[in-house]
Design a protein around this nucleic acid. Structure first.
Length: 276
DNA sequence: CTACCATCCTGGTTGC
DNA sequence: TGCAACCAGGATGGTA
């Protein structure tokens, strides 16, 4: 569910409210998320101070004192909600609750439990198994067409499948891959090896722009996603293709309109006239 | 090595 | 209204 723009929006909400705060108490209501919560989870977090909050791909990284990093991943249906009232009643799928020294309550809610909560050590975070193989951050200036091409090299799959692979580029999911390919006018069915020259040159700025636009809109709210204050994102109103089967292509007068196909078990939306 | 598929889990929507 | 089937923004481990 939440892809880079949604995770970035959540990160910003957390950063604003939590930087410098201490974790006074942790309540753990369910430990069986995508992987079990680490041992001594509550005790290791107690009284830790939040020094800095980063994002890497779709992971939220809260850097604490004592060389500790709290890693959060929202999976498909995860939310992080900040309440000003620490007496806020927890609901069915509120699995972990963090109470701060200034009486805020941060709730990790995740009905499908594909999300993840883990602890890592800051000094070798890059070597953490969940982060080790992740590709470049698309909004980093170091993400250039040359870098993308080298990451794609040798892959025998469609460009759609390749861009969903976090090892190629970090943070894209089904929505933003569809939207980026639309903006780059590249067919999602195209084999990676044939994405070269001008197409490859268009892809990097297309990815960057769609992510930046979505972040500006506070992300996309379809079913589950909300910002930390409960507000919806509104980038879903700007989708050109995603979830728009049968609609007119915003860029051409073709009769076919937006098509929906299946690639690797996921829906892909595109315009076969506009995207080649 | 890469690529593909099923799977984890719940809830909302669709179609009969 | 009831109920079953299907679908969903992700990641991964096993298999081919």
């Amino acid at each position: 569910m939440p892809e880079l723009p949604e995770v970035e929006t959540v990160c910003r909400g957390l950063r604003e409210k939590l930087t410098g705060r201490r974790i006074a108490r942790v309540v753990q209501r369910r430990a069986d998320l995508r992987k079990p919560l680490p041992k001594h989870f509550r005790a290791r977090l107690k009284d830790r101070q939040v020094r800095r909050i980063d994002r890497r791909a779709k992971y939220i990284l809260l850097h604490l004192d004592s060389n500790l990093v709290l890693m959060l991943h929202l999976g498909m249906s995860g939310r992080l909600l900040i309440h000003d009232n620490p007496k806020q009643v927890l609901e069915t799928h509120d699995h972990v609750a963090f109470y701060t020294d200034d009486r805020q309550l941060i709730v990790f809610r995740d009905p499908r439990r594909f999300g993840l909560v883990d602890l890592a050590s800051a000094s070798d975070l890059d070597k953490h198994p969940l982060l080790r193989d992740i590709g470049p951050e698309p909004l980093d200036p170091a993400f250039t067409p040359t870098v993308l091409s080298s990451r794609l090299k040798g892959r025998k799959t469609s460009i759609k499948a390749a861009l969903l692979d976090q090892r190629v580029v970090a943070g894209l999911g089904n929505i933003y891959v569809c939207e980026a390919l639309y903006r780059a006018r590249i067919s999602p069915r195209r084999q990676v090896a044939t994405v070269a020259g001008r197409r490859a040159e268009r892809l990097v700025p297309a990815i960057r722009q769609v992510l930046a636009d979505a972040i500006d809109a506070g992300g996309s709210s379809l079913r589950d996603y909300v910002q930390t204050d409960g507000e919806l994102g509104y980038f879903q109103h700007h989708f050109a293709v995603y979830d728009r089967e049968g609609a007119k292509c915003p860029n051409c007068a073709c009769e076919t309109g937006i098509k929906r196909i299946n690639q690797g078990g996921r829906s892909t939306f595109y315009c076969s006239m506009h995207q080649r």
